[in-house]
Each structure stands twice: as structure tokens, then as C-alpha cells.
Design a protein around this nucleic acid. Structure first.
Lengths: 181, 181
DNA sequence: GTCTATAGGATGATAGAC
DNA sequence: GTCTATCATCCTATAGAC
């Protein structure tokens, strides 16, 4: 029996994203996704060629946003650290769910050939912010790691908005040896 | 045929820890562990009652260390923030492999009934360090999240030793609104 | 302590009816 | 678009021989 809502494909993505982000990709079976939607596994294969394909559909927006972020941040990273941290925080917040799923299931990165585009994005961002000095790099790791944790540990749009300024202030202090905040 | 090394149980733990920490718990099968050791799956069951049991054996030292850390840190958390951050960093570094495995496979926590003892250890640590003020809590999340990322992103004992002071300096700055470093 | 053999179940994926 | 039925493959775990 056909279902009322015609946009099953979008529904699948919504449910899958929620399950992937809490359990991880490999730990979520197509059976679970199908059951929650009230359809069968086989029906999923009408909408997505494979499990891999479903994950790709979920992750594409993040990858594109990430590339745009790098393109926009590269030029001003050294002169406007605060602005770059803000953009990074906002991007993490926008894709919080996908993010959590990825961090929870690093294995998936290599499976998706995201490695080529993403494997070193954190260290690329480090270098962009502070250059090559090893001590500065440590500071950048603390700052960025702290920001990322905030987005995940204070979930929800309201909480994110409430902590944004304070989190970025703290990250900026971690980043800067001579506080000019 | 019996193997030369009598301490198969320890060998199993070593191999399992390496595989768990890179692939995650659920993603590592007993077949893989057995093959790498040159024994069969069935032999594993002589040394460990179940897969769950094997994981418990690996994780027990971390749990005990964590409890000891909390017991020792609670009293001086507000007066000696730097000392507590140092202890936390060292503990994360000591159990880096188990840590990476857990972060990579959060699902495992609930499976092990670790939830009761660990589910809120991060937020408990936050509160211990800074009290209840929401803004201070954000600072604590940045500081602790940053430290944890350092331990994982600079792997190896040498790298850990090299960055220790700088990472803690940065975390302390994130934690402290009026820098007294 | 280690083996072979197997039970019992879940998984991703496909074929073909409706 | 969704179904039933099925496949091949993997998993954890157990029984019993050596």
C-alpha cells in the first residue's frame, strides 16, 4: 500500500540522520530505519541504491558547506581570527547531527572517499589560523576542539545561540597567548 | 597445537585493544582478532567468556583510574584548577587507546553498564571545576574538550609530552576570564 | 588450550509480483 | 512505490574431539 506522504525519500533521510547521529553509521541497520518508517527494507532500495548511497545523500551538504567555509576563510584567517572561529562554530552548529555521526563513526570517512577532501581539514584549519609554529598549533587544537565539543554537548538551537559568544571568547583566549579579547 | 607464548590472554587483550581503538568495538569481530593471533575464534572463548567480557577486561583499568581521579580532584578543583587539568590530561593520555575506542563507539557505554558510572563524568568535571554558572560551564567545556582533542590528535608518548604544558596553558586561558597564567 | 563443526540470527542486497 | 521471498555472507556463541 502506498503511503500518504509522497516525499518518502525525505522522510528516510530525516530518520536515517537521527539514527546515524546517535548510533553511528555501521550500527544502524536498514531494518531499523524501515521499521521506524513503517515500510520494508526493500522499499528503501527503491529510493536509495545502497546504504552507502543513503549516507552520501546525508553528507553532501556538509561537504559542500565545508569547502565553502575553507574558500572563504583562507584569506582572512590570520587577520580576523575571531570571525573565522565564529564561522567555524556556526558551520559545526548547522551540521551538528551529521557531525556527531561522523565523529562517532570515523570508519565511515574512508568508506565514502571523503578522505581525499576531508582527512586533514582540521589540521588545515589549524595551519590557516596560526601558521606552522608547533606551540601555536597546540593552541589552535585546543580552541577548535573546545568549540566542537560545545556544539555537541549543548545540543539544540536555543542552547547553541545562548553559548555562542562565550564559547568563542573562550576559544579565542585559548588561541591567543597575549589576550587581546 | 599449543602456542609458544603461554600468556595468550594478555596477547588477546593487546591485539583487541589496538583493533577496538581504531575500528570501534562493534566493528571488530572475534574472527579478526583470532586471525591476527593465529588462533581460532573458539580458542578466544577459552580465555574470555564472551566478547562483552573481553571488552570489560580492557576497560576496567580506565574506569578505576577515572574514579580515583574524581576522588582526588574533587577537594582541590576550585583552588588548584591547573593541577586538576594536568591530572585530567595525564589520565586521558594514559588511557588514550581505550579512550579513542570509547569515543568511536559510544554505543558500547550503555552495553557495559558504564552509563551509571560514566555518563555524566564530563559534566560532573565541569561543575567541579567552575561551579554552576552557565557561562563558566561553557568555558570549562571548551577547556576540557580542547585538552581531550590534543591527546587524540597528537598521538604517541613523545608528542604528548612535548605538547603537555602548552595544551594546559591554553586550556587554562579558556577556563579563566581574567588570565592569571 | 586449541581445534572442527555447527547452531541460530542479523545484515545488505536482489528478483519479481502487485 | 511497496510488497514477499530469498540469497550469500557475516556475526556471536556452543558442543565435543584431541
Amino acid at each position: 500500500m502506498p503511503r500518504l506522504n509522497t516525499d518518502t525519500r525525505e522522510e528516510v533521510k530525516t530518520v536515517a540522520l537521527r539514527l546515524f547521529s546517535t548510533r553511528g553509521f555501521e550500527q544502524t541497520s536498514l531494518r531499523e530505519i524501515a521499521e521506524e518508517l513503517g515500510i520494508t527494507k526493500a522499499a528503501l532500495y527503491y529510493h536509495f541504491a545502497s546504504k552507502h548511497d543513503l549516507l552520501s545523500a546525508l553528507i553532501t551538504p556538509l561537504v559542500e558547506d565545508l569547502q565553502a567555509f575553507f574558500a572563504g576563510a583562507e584569506a582572512r584567517a590570520r587577520t580576523d581570527q575571531r570571525g573565522v572561529l565564529e564561522d567555524y562554530f556556526d558551520m559545526c552548529a548547522r551540521h551538528r547531527q551529521v557531525f556527531a555521526g561522523l565523529l562517532r563513526d570515523v570508519q565511515v570517512l574512508s568508506e565514502l572517499d571523503l578522505v581525499a577532501t576531508m582527512i586533514h581539514w582540521r589540521s588545515r584549519l589549524d595551519a590557516m589560523l596560526v601558521g606552522d609554529d608547533p606551540v601555536d598549533r597546540v593552541r589552535a587544537v585546543v580552541a577548535l576542539g573546545g568549540l566542537q565539543d560545545c556544539v555537541i554537548l549543548f545540543p539544540g538551537d536555543a542552547a547553541t545561540a545562548a553559548i555562542r559568544t562565550h564559547a568563542i571568547d573562550a576559544a579565542l583566549r585559548a588561541l591567543t597567548p597575549h589576550p587581546s579579547v
